[in-house]
C-alpha cells in the first residue's frame, strides 16, 4: 500500500468521493470562520458603512473575482474532458484575474489607510475581513500555480482530482466574497 491513499474497501465509497466529502467539510468549517467575521461586523458596527470605501473599486474587483470563478469552472470542465491545453489556458486566466483582484484589494488598502486606519472600528473590521479573505486568495493563487506547473507536466491526464479540488477552493473563496462585498461595501 502506498502511504497516500487508503484503498477503499471493496464495497466502499470511491476514493474521489471520500476526497470530495472531506473538501466540503473543510468548506463547512471555514464557512463558520467567515460567518463569525460577519457576525462581528454587525455586532461592532451595526449597519454602518464608512463613506470613504471606494464603491467603484469594490464593484470592479467583485466582477473580476466572479469572472475568475467562471474561468476556473471552465478549467475544471476541460480537465474532466481531458483537454489539457484548454485547462492550462483557463487556469492561467484564473490566476491572472485572481492577481488583479488582489491588486485591487491592495490598492483599496492603500487608500483605506488614509481614511479609516486599523485604529478605528470600521478600519478594524474592514482590514480584518478583507485581510483574511485576501489570505485565502493568496493560498488559492499558490494552488493555481502548482496546478499550472503540474498540468504542463501532464500530471492530470488520468487523475483530475487535484484540479477539481483547487477549482472548488477557488469557488469557495468567491462565495465568501459574494457575502463580504455587500457586507463591507453596500448594506
Amino acid at each position: 500500500m502506498t502511504v497516500t491513499d487508503a484503498p477503499p474497501l471493496e464495497h466502499g465509497v470511491s476514493r474521489i468521493k471520500i476526497n470530495r466529502i472531506g473538501l466540503w467539510l473543510f468548506f463547512l468549517s471555514e464557512a463558520m470562520l467567515f460567518a463569525g467575521l460577519i457576525a462581528i461586523r454587525f455586532s461592532l458596527l451595526g449597519t454602518e458603512v464608512d463613506e470613504a470605501v471606494s464603491q467603484s473599486i469594490g464593484l470592479v474587483i467583485t466582477v473580476i473575482l466572479l469572472a475568475s470563478s467562471y474561468t476556473a469552472f471552465r478549467a475544471e470542465h476541460a480537465a474532466h474532458k481531458g483537454d489539457q491545453a484548454a485547462m492550462v489556458q483557463y487556469l492561467w486566466a484564473t490566476l491572472i484575474l485572481g492577481t488583479i483582484f488582489l491588486g485591487g484589494v491592495a490598492f483599496e488598502w492603500y487608500e483605506a489607510f488614509m481614511e479609516f486606519p486599523p485604529g478605528t472600528a470600521f478600519g478594524t473590521v474592514f482590514f480584518t475581513m478583507t485581510g483574511i479573505h485576501a489570505f485565502h486568495v493568496i493560498t488559492g493563487l499558490i494552488f493555481l500555480t502548482v496546478l499550472i506547473r503540474n498540468a504542463k507536466a501532464g500530471r492530470y491526464a488520468d487523475d483530475s482530482w487535484p484540479v477539481e479540488a483547487g477549482v472548488k477552493y477557488w469557488h469557495f473563496v468567491d462565495i465568501v466574497w459574494v457575502f463580504f462585498y455587500p457586507v463591507l461595501y453596500l448594506i
Binding site: 468549517s29 470562520l33 463569525g36 462581528i40 486606519p117 480584518t128 483574511i132
Partner: peptide
C-alpha cells in the same frame, strides 16, 4: 464547526496586540 470561533477569538486578540486594531 466550533473550533473556528476560538481561532477567531485568538485572532482578534492578536490583531489588537500587534496591528493596532480596536
Amino acid at each position: 464547526i466550533f473550533t473556528q470561533f476560538i481561532a477567531l477569538a485568538m485572532l482578534m486578540v492578536v490583531l489588537d496586540r500587534t496591528a493596532g486594531m480596536v
